[in-house]
Amino acid sequence: MDVHSLPEKEIVAIILYTSLFLMILSVVLIVFFYFSRKKIIQKELEKKDLVLQYQKEQLHAIIFTQEEERKRIAQDLHDDISSKLNIVSLNSHLLTAPNLTEAETAEITENIINLTTKALDNSRKIAHNLLPPVFEKFGLNAGIEELCEEFETSKSVKTHYKNEIDFDEKDIDRHLHVFRILQELMNNSLRHGKATEVWISFTEKDGVNNCNYEDNGIGFDSANAENQKGLGMKNIDSRISFLEGTIKITSEIDNGIAVNFTF
């Protein structure tokens, strides 16, 4: 039997069906690609928006902390130095007064000397707070050691510091970020975590510097994203991105906090 015996109608139907099927199919496929492209582009735009939003937030955080820092410095200057210098100036004026007895003069001079010493002391402290001279002169290791000491003596926090890295002095700009991060973390542990002990250690693995920080404070719920959006945390984040490192923060309520970052 050959094909010709098939009714013509049937063949036409088959051809019609096949071509119609393929036509509808191509239309469906084109529509599919059109919508897929649209969806992907939209998703990409959303991603870009998110990045922009994040950058904006970081910028806000930077400006805000700058202003806070300015406020703090202004307050320190005003409270600790200006006020004292004011009294010094008053006392000096007193000295010029006529008919002063010897004892009075001596008292006033002593006052002036006391106040200027205090003012000097305070100005040194302010400068030290802004940038610790030990850090600047002797590098990160000494800076952290001093930071720990300061916390031990003035804030009754027990610190355990261990360093396995020999820091290169050329990287001092990067190390300042590390120093600031640790400073922020320690301040947070003390202020929010009510910690009494902190552990800091530097290790090196495959050429990547690692810093481990732990405390025994009250911690927070790290699953809750709200806890990761504080200004201090944002600051740490932007510093980490400066260092092109990674950071991992784990914490549980009543179980302290563990931070691990690379730089």
Binding site: Y17, L20, F21, I24, L25, V28, L29, F32, F35, S36, K39, I40, K43
Partner: peptide, 21 residues
């Protein structure tokens, strides 16, 4: 055959579209 196949292919393509993201 044409109708059912086309419909199922369309459903599968919608599913692919949903799976894009």
């Amino acid at each position: 055959i044409a109708l059912t196949s086309l419909l199922i292919v369309v459903y599968a393509l919608i599913h692919f579209y949903n799976m894009l993201t």
